[in-house]
Design a protein around this nucleic acid. Structure first.
Length: 221
DNA sequence: CGTGCGATTATCT
DNA sequence: GATAATCGCACGC
């Protein structure tokens, strides 16, 4: 971990809203290397996924602006946080024009500041202590490490003084950026390989393990 | 090391 | 009533 003085040097300029206002597919690779902050905790993004609107069957916005997905149709730069599998939170940044659905799911990153706070949340209720690379490895782990939950849904990340916000970080060399199928996305057409909208930085230990979309097995009776 | 499955509840049909 | 943009643990090799 860096001492506090060095952590300040890691803080780049705040991300302007205009960088979120393009389609999610363009914003996603651009976000790799950027740093998400929640108070003292900073996570440098190493893996993200793009989600679009009606034409994207894997998106929550696929069925229109339901109460949950409405944020995805709103202005760029706001947080879309949803509660998943009855116990996990996932954090997205809304992209695209106001009125057009789009978001980038923040899937994984490395903790570059506030490691103790992140670890305290990740270790809570458990007798083991996590290695540094696991503190934000996976979308639900990332929100847990950052301390982000449904209270942050809809928050404007570009507003001055927002507790959750994005700053410039060390962008990876273009040659290290990889793309592939999104994780865990199922539905008609199966495994989601038709939408290779997952982006990650090759060689980063904090990139989450890839698991193909789960096939629904017939239930025994 | 890899694979399989149960947990637990908001959201949508 | 079914499903889910997941995780962590148990088990087998």
């Amino acid at each position: 971990m860096e001492p506090d003085g060095a952590a300040a040097d890691l803080q780049g300029a705040p991300w302007p809203r205009a960088l979120f206002a393009d389609p999610a597919l363009e914003v996603a690779p651009r976000l790799l290397g950027a740093v998400v902050w929640h108070g003292p905790v900073g996570v440098r993004l190493t893996e993200v996924e793009a989600y679009a609107g009606g034409e994207d069957p894997g998106s929550h916005a696929h069925r229109g602006p339901t109460p949950r997905a409405a944020v995805m149709f709103g202005p760029a730069g706001h947080a879309y946080v949803y509660f998943s599998y009855g116990m996990h939170h996932c954090l997205n940044v809304v992209c695209g024009r106001d009125g057009v659905a789009g978001a980038v799911l923040l899937r994984a990153g490395e903790v570059v500041a506030g490691e103790n706070g992140a670890r305290a949340r990740r270790d809570a209720g458990r007798s083991l202590t996590h290695p540094a690379r696991d503190l934000a490895r996976g979308p639900a782990r990332l929100t847990q490490g950052l301390g982000v939950d449904l209270r942050h849904n809809g928050m404007d990340l570009c507003a001055a003084g927002a507790t959750v916000h994005v700053r410039q970080g060390s962008a990876p060399a273009a040659s290290r950026i990889r793309t592939g199928p999104r994780v865990g996305v199922s539905g008609p057409g199966g495994d989601g390989t038709a939408y290779p909208w997952r982006f990650w930085i090759e060689g980063e230990s904090s990139v989450s393990a890839y698991r193909p979309g789960r096939v629904v097995a017939p239930r025994p009776r």
